[in-house]
Amino acid sequence: MITAEQKPMQEIIQYIAPYSKILLVGCNECVTVCAAGGRKEVGLLASALHLNHLKQGKTIDIKEITLERQCDPEYVEELAPYIDGVDAVVSMACGCGVQTVAGRYKKSPVFPAVNTRFMGASLGQGVWAERCKGCGDCVLGITGGICPVARCSKHLFNGPCGGTSNGQCEIGPETDCAWRLIWERLKELGMEDRYEDLMNAKDWRPGGAAGPGKIIREDLA
């Protein structure tokens, strides 16, 4: 999923300072799962913003709504009945959702309330870790199911570097050395001999080097 974290409260407060009617929009997808911008977080942020205004002896109108998927024009259309009645939109979706809303409702300022972090997986309750960089040319099939692009701090394709100690990355003990993990997994799979295959310099075009990515499926478009 795409992971996100709520922005510092003061940053959000500054965005909306000039406005008195806000449409606060959550998303039912990734940001709900990572507890950053789902229905629950929309309620909590709305409440926090109310408390902020009460502190200043003011009031603010906040319409809370959580869309099925904010990165999909079909669902973003559901905001149409409310948009004219508000001064600004605050989106709790990832950057994809924020931009879909901003692209559809051109006259309304749209502000992000979360920082989109990475594509990750859940490691347990309340813990998410980066697992994919969207490089566009997946190598997991030859690296034992562990991604060197996302999980090696230096994106090494022929690792590990000389900084590994006690199986951890040189950047710190909370990060596993991806190449140690790859090696262990290759051994488990009886694929040790694959380690010495040279991995050639990567073509970064599918991962963004060729400009903003776009997929067009002729059979669906």
Partner: peptide, 13 residues
């Protein structure tokens, strides 16, 4: 960090 290519790929280049 750039890390376009790694040290092994640099050698080869």
């Amino acid at each position: 960090g750039v890390f376009d290519i790694d040290s092994v790929q640099m050698i080869n280049m």
